[in-house]
Design a protein around this nucleic acid. Structure first.
Lengths: 205, 205
DNA sequence: GATGATAGTTAGTAATAACTAACATCATGC
DNA sequence: GCATGATGTTAGTTATTACTAACTATCATC
């Protein structure tokens, strides 16, 4: 049993350094030298651990990508009250994407050279998409929301979340200054109540 | 007056080839050889026209980026009817981004190495943002929509548009299959009318 | 048919970067 | 104290690629 490399500490430093560098520059632009310096090891150590540069990325993806089961998360917490539920769904999705942010950014940059990488995002998104569409249908059947095309609506809702996430992932607060909580609050309110003053609508605030 | 290189045809083929290649791979990964082959000229021709690889990109950005005046476009067409106007605004924004799509994709990939590139997107977005916020305030004053925080609302609206655009720019129809027209239709309807069945709401469709 | 502008060809330079090999160091546990 | 395993160091190989230089070929215009 080796006392060196306890818990793969070195391995881990390398992977984290690689992720951090590759989310900003492209895979191609990040050199082993960069990674080694950032992880405070020698280049040889990187090669010894991962054989190739590509191997570093693959190991990092495997270790640091998360595809949770939205189903399980929601099953217990959905209360069939529109605002409550949408708030939960939005927050959970953004949480999830935040955790996968490095992989997301790399996947975008390498989307033509390593299309497999998109599968993490793809799986998360598709999973939530289906759940959300089902949820809307259920709510419509329970007569708790308007009967509009559930699929189209799901797309709009997801697009809004994706827009917020990706804008902040790319540019921080350059375009969107609202915090995640503020944003979710506003978007859920908007989706639920709409903007138009109908014949005799109620007034918010 | 030379009859060769009429209208900068060669120059143009090179620029278009460069844009096309660089939206998929990173600036770093695209070689002059790639560009020359794609443009069907020799490498030397590329260097003669643009001196450096970076020069190619800069020329391409200058020639193929558009920052229109949303103000002018809207001044004539806004009719102060919520659904109509939002439809126009959404369509115009998506149009604009579509025209700038190559620059958008490159700007994202090079956002840390050439942050200036983001200014095209930045200018377009900021411009529309302000206009939209003003528009909401006006509509609220005219009592034609609910009195919610105009800025927060603007963020949500822009996020939705940005989400649709970027998802399709990155992955085509992988996540969003709806056409631009279908999407705008749904999102405007959602924003205007909301989803919840209020005490005695009306029914859509 | 000479001129000048544009493009192609070929050869070369210099820098970068992935990856290999061989040897040195150093701490841990026995 | 010695074996072991992880890491560092140094030197080198090979491929790629931006960019230069010098020469050639083509072709429209005069």
């Amino acid at each position: 049993m080796s006392m060196n490399e306890i818990d793969g500490m070195t391995t881990n430093r390398i992977l984290l350094a690689a992720l951090k560098l590759m989310q900003d520059k492209s895979f191609r632009s990040v050199t082993i030298r960069d990674i080694a310096q950032a992880a405070n090891v020698s280049e040889m150590t990187v090669f010894r651990h991962f054989k190739t540069k590509r191997g570093v990325l693959e190991a990092a993806i495997n270790k640091y990508s998360f595809v949770p089961s939205f189903k399980e998360i929601f099953e217990k917490q959905i209360v069939h009250e529109l605002e409550n539920d949408l708030h939960l769904i939005a927050t959970t999705y953004l949480d999830q994407m935040q955790r996968n942010m490095p992989i997301f950014l790399i996947a975008i940059q390498e989307r033509t050279t390593m299309p497999e990488l998109s599968s993490v995002i793809s799986n998360n998104t598709r999973q939530l998409r289906e759940l959300l569409a089902d949820y809307f249908v259920t709510m419509q059947n329970e007569n708790k929301m308007m009967k509009v095309d559930a699929n189209a609506l799901t797309t709009t809702f997801m697009a809004t979340l994706f827009g917020y996430f990706s804008s902040t992932a790319f540019w921080g607060e350059l375009f969107i200054r609202e915090s995640r909580e503020e944003f979710v609050e506003t978007m859920v309110a908007t989706f639920c109540h709409g903007l138009k003053k109908e014949a005799e609508g109620y007034e918010q605030n």
